[in-house]
């Protein structure tokens, strides 16, 4: 089935964000009614899938459950994390509440650790304007290192720009260069060390730094996933032998 997104028609765009950021509104605005809600195999939480056409390309959009973090241990967060980490989306939109940016940055920084092809969608701009909140969008994009698209999904504002930006990211014409958070030196050193080992061990597509961070943080629920990634389509022994020779 579509557990890791690899069998979804490409290109696949993942939609992530905190709860209450108008993520579903954006999803509905982008896909119209071309969607179906399906339960994920063995999971408790619904993930809606939909699609839209832009510039001759049909893009599959996956609406992930709203989460505040990727490091906590709720079913929603596990699904979101697993999809971003192992589903290998062609691009990830992080929907951010413009009225409450600081709080929403937590998730975007974490997602930027997992994926590089990230686009931030600064939603609820209409509400921010109404409250007199002003955001320097170019500066935000510079600081994050990823494209930032201001939008008001309820009014349909910013949708075309978002589709265009995604199109360019998917086509490889824009290369987001996320600038994730650097942790304290001790933690950074531990992460780097472990990431090097993981890079040796796994085949392409696994983000060693992020997995290392999860493991050091004691998140054991990721282990079965890594195991499949390390063995993947090859037979077990095969991988180990090949990996030991590669470095």
């Amino acid at each position: 089935m579509t557990r890791d997104g690899t069998e979804l028609p490409r290109p696949v765009v993942a939609l992530a964000g905190n709860p209450n950021t108008g993520k579903s509104t954006l999803f509905n605005a982008l896909t119209g009614l071309k969607q179906h809600t399906g339960n994920w195999p063995g999971k408790t939480v619904a993930c809606a899938r939909g699609w839209y056409r832009y510039n001759g390309q049909t893009v599959t959009l996956v609406d992930l459950p709203g989460t505040y973090s990727l490091l906590s241990d709720s079913p929603e967060e596990r699904i979101t994390r697993d999809f971003l980490c192992f589903g290998r989306p062609d691009a990830t939109v992080v929907v951010v509440d413009a009225t409450c940016l600081e709080r929403n940055l937590n998730l975007i920084f974490q997602i930027m650790e997992v994926n590089t092809r990230v686009v931030a969608c600064l939603n609820l701009m209409d509400e921010a304007r109404r409250r007199g909140i002003r955001i320097d969008v170019p500066a935000l994009a510079r600081e994050l290192g990823v494209p930032v698209v201001p939008a008001a999904a309820r009014r349909g504002e910013g949708l075309t720009l978002l589709k265009e930006t995604l199109h360019r990211v998917i086509e490889g014409r824009i290369h987001p260069a996320p600038r994730p958070v650097s942790y304290d030196p001790e933690l950074e050193a531990a992460v780097a060390e472990l990431a090097a080992d993981l890079a040796v061990l796994s085949r392409e597509g696994l983000n060693p730094r992020w997995v290392a961070l999860c493991l050091i943080a004691g998140d054991e629920s990721i282990i079965p996933k890594i195991r499949t990634f390390c063995n993947g389509k090859e037979t077990q022994g095969d991988t180990h032998v090949r990996n030991r020779v590669t470095p």
Partner: peptide
């Protein structure tokens, strides 16, 4: 435990 993580996530 989970409460601590939740509180940290809230900032």
């Amino acid at each position: 435990g989970p409460t601590r993580r939740r509180l940290l996530d809230l900032g």
